[in-house]
C-alpha cells in the first residue's frame, strides 16, 4: 500500500487556481461536460458556418429560376433531388434537394435560409431583451405605480397565447418579415421584463446598493452598473431558449403567409408555399421543416445546458 504525499505548496496552488476560476470558466467546463449541450453547440456552429458561407456554398442564387440560369436548364417544376454520386444521370443538372415550384434550386435556398433564421432568432431576442430589461428594471427599481402599470401591461400581453397575439399584431402592422420580427419581439418582452424585475427586486435593498447610493451614485449607475449585472445569468438562459421559440414562431407566421414573403428564402415561407404539394413533392416540405427543427433543437439543447451550468445549486458538479 502506498501513500501519496502532497506538498502544502501544491495544495495552495490548486486552491489558488480554484479561487481564480471565473463563473464563465466554470460554466464552460460544465457545458462541455454535458453531451447534449455539446451536440447543440456543434449543430449551432455548423449552422453559423453555413450562414456565413452561404454565398460560396450555394450553387445558385436563392431567387434564381433555372430558366434564367446561364445556360438555362431544362428541369421540371418540383423535380426530385438529383445527386450524381447517388446515380443521378449526368445529362441532368445536379440539384441536391431538387427544385421548387418556381424552378429555383432548393439546396441554395436552404443554405440562405440558415442565415435568415439565425438573424430572426438573434434580432427578435435582442429587441425583446433591450425593451424587457428597461421595463423590468424600471418597474423593479422604482416600484409603486410605475411597477404596477408596467407589470399589468405585461400581464395583459401574457394573457394571450403568444402565437395568436403575434398573428394579431402582424395583421395590424401588415405582413412581412420585419413586421413579423417586431410582433414576435413584442410578444417576447414580458418574459424578459419579469426576469429582470425579479433580479432587481432581489438586490435593490442590499447593502452594496445602499452603499453606492450613499456614495452619491445616480439612478443610472445603480441600476445599470450595480443591479443589472445580477440579472445577466437568467437573461442569458432565457435569451437562448427565447431564440428557439422566436425561430419557431417566425416560421409559423411565414407558414401562414404573414411573415417573410416570396421569394425570400425563409424556411417557414418555403414550407408554406409548397404545403399543398406534400403528396407529390414531399421533399420540398421535409427539408425546410427538418432545418427549422434542427436549429430550434440546437438552441434548446444549449439553453438547457446553460441553465444547468449556471445553476448555483449544481455547484458541486463543477
Amino acid at each position: 500500500m502506498t501513500t501519496q504525499t502532497v506538498s502544502p505548496k501544491k495544495l495552495d496552488a490548486e486552491a489558488l487556481s480554484l479561487d481564480s476560476v471565473s463563473l464563465w470558466q466554470i460554466t464552460r467546463r460544465r457545458l462541455l461536460r454535458r453531451k447534449s449541450s455539446v451536440v447543440g453547440m456543434v449543430i449551432l456552429a455548423i449552422l453559423i458556418l453555413i450562414a456565413l458561407t452561404a454565398q460560396w456554398l450555394a450553387p445558385y442564387s436563392p431567387t434564381l429560376s433555372m430558366l434564367d440560369a446561364d445556360p438555362p436548364q431544362k428541369v421540371e417544376k418540383r423535380s426530385s433531388p438529383c445527386i450524381y454520386a447517388l446515380g443521378c444521370p449526368k445529362d441532368q443538372p445536379q440539384h441536391i434537394m431538387g427544385t421548387d415550384g418556381n424552378l429555383r434550386d432548393e439546396f441554395s435556398r436552404m443554405l440562405y435560409g440558415a442565415r435568415l433564421s439565425l438573424m430572426i432568432g438573434f434580432s427578435t431576442v435582442t429587441f425583446a431583451i433591450i425593451i424587457g430589461t428597461v421595463l423590468g428594471a424600471l418597474g423593479g427599481y422604482f416600484g409603486g405605480w410605475i411597477d404596477n402599470v408596467i407589470m399589468r401591461v405585461m400581464d395583459v400581453l401574457l394573457a394571450f397565447p403568444s402565437l395568436l397575439l403575434a398573428i394579431a399584431i402582424v395583421t395590424v402592422i401588415g405582413p412581412g418579415l420585419i413586421n413579423a420580427l417586431l410582433a414576435i419581439g413584442i410578444v417576447s418582452i414580458p418574459a424578459y421584463a419579469r426576469v429582470v424585475r425579479g433580479s432587481v427586486l432581489s438586490v435593490r435593498e442590499m447593502d452594496y446598493v445602499s452603499a453606492t447610493r450613499a456614495l452619491g451614485g445616480n439612478t443610472f449607475e445603480i441600476l445599470f452598473k450595480r443591479i443589472l449585472p445580477n440579472a445577466l445569468t437568467p437573461l442569458i438562459v432565457q435569451g437562448t431558449l427565447g431564440i428557439a421559440s422566436a425561430i419557431l414562431d417566425a416560421a409559423a407566421l411565414s407558414f401562414l403567409g404573414l411573415g417573410a414573403q416570396p421569394p425570400t428564402p425563409e424556411w417557414g415561407s418555403m414550407l408554406g408555399a409548397e404545403r399543398n404539394q406534400v403528396f407529390t413533392a414531399p421533399h420540398l416540405v421535409f427539408y425546410p421543416g427538418l432545418a427549422i427543427m434542427l436549429t430550434v433543437l440546437a438552441f434548446n439543447l444549449l439553453g438547457d445546458g446553460l441553465r444547468d451550468a449556471l445553476d448555483p445549486r449544481l455547484a458541486h458538479t463543477s
Binding site: 409559423a252 414550407l271 408554406g272 404545403r275 427549422i292 430550434v296 439543447l301
Partner: peptide, 14 residues
C-alpha cells in the same frame, strides 16, 4: 428535446 423543437405544421404535414 426533439418534440419541443418540432414545428407543429411540419409534423402535421409529414
Amino acid at each position: 428535446n426533439v418534440g419541443v423543437s418540432m414545428p407543429v405544421f411540419w409534423l402535421g404535414l409529414m
